[in-house]
Design a protein around this nucleic acid. Structure first.
Lengths: 108, 108
DNA sequence: GGCATTTGGTTTGCGATGCAAACTTGTTTG
DNA sequence: CAAACAAGTTTGCATCGCAAACCAAATGCC
């Protein structure tokens, strides 16, 4: 599939190799924040990523299901407290995604 | 919305500013090819972007509807020939998208 | 000539997705 | 104790991307 001698080949392959799970802006935002803060609280993510609770909740579930982050539910006082952080797999996947992006930009 | 003093603020704003129309990998591939070749034929795009005809057709329609590219239908001999090229708006939108990506990578 | 195949696409159908609104459960406040 | 709030989750819907089906015209072949 990539055997053609075309200057765009590498470029297009990079585009096609993008991980759709991470590529979604809302999730990319979440992962980006998590990549710099260890644990992040639900309401912090909600605020900084400008996502509704419902939206955030479902994206977190998807990322958790994919093993990119882990979610920990506890209590602060009597209130539920949900926190998330990247797993090692998540860190790696995000880094890989960034590498693809970088290649894409370099070659364009 | 961006008034917060958070180191991630700029980053997240870049993510949220991504143009979804361009962000879709299939369309990003199409636009990327077009950005380097002036007119491109349908079957060339089909091949290099690894898209089915149906898929390509609908993405082209969307990009045309958005004014990012123009489509010209003619004949080569007796066969229909469809070609596409970026409009000025398309060039600019793509460049803007790349700038957003670059910022995103820089700040991460 | 006539039937099958190929070319060059477009349209249709469907499963998956993202988002917002509604709901839930428990807590705090007046 | 009732109303409002906090912290999420679930549901419903509109949209999307993709593949399969379709279509029209041209060509191959017997």
């Amino acid at each position: 599939m990539s055997e053609q001698h075309n200057p765009n080949r590498q470029l297009i392959d990079n585009v096609l190799a993008l991980d759709r799970l991470i590529h979604e802006p809302a999730r990319l935002a979440i992962l980006t924040v998590l990549s710099s803060v260890d644990w992040a609280e639900f309401s912090f993510l909600e605020d900084i990523c400008a996502l509704s609770k419902g939206n955030l909740s479902s994206h977190l579930s998807k990322l958790e299901a994919a093993g990119l982050l882990e979610i920990e539910k506890s209590f602060r006082g009597k209130r539920p407290l949900t926190r998330a952080r990247l797993t090692d797999a998540g860190q790696q996947a995000l880094q890989q995604y960034r590498i693809q992006l970088a290649k894409l930009l370099q070659s364009s």
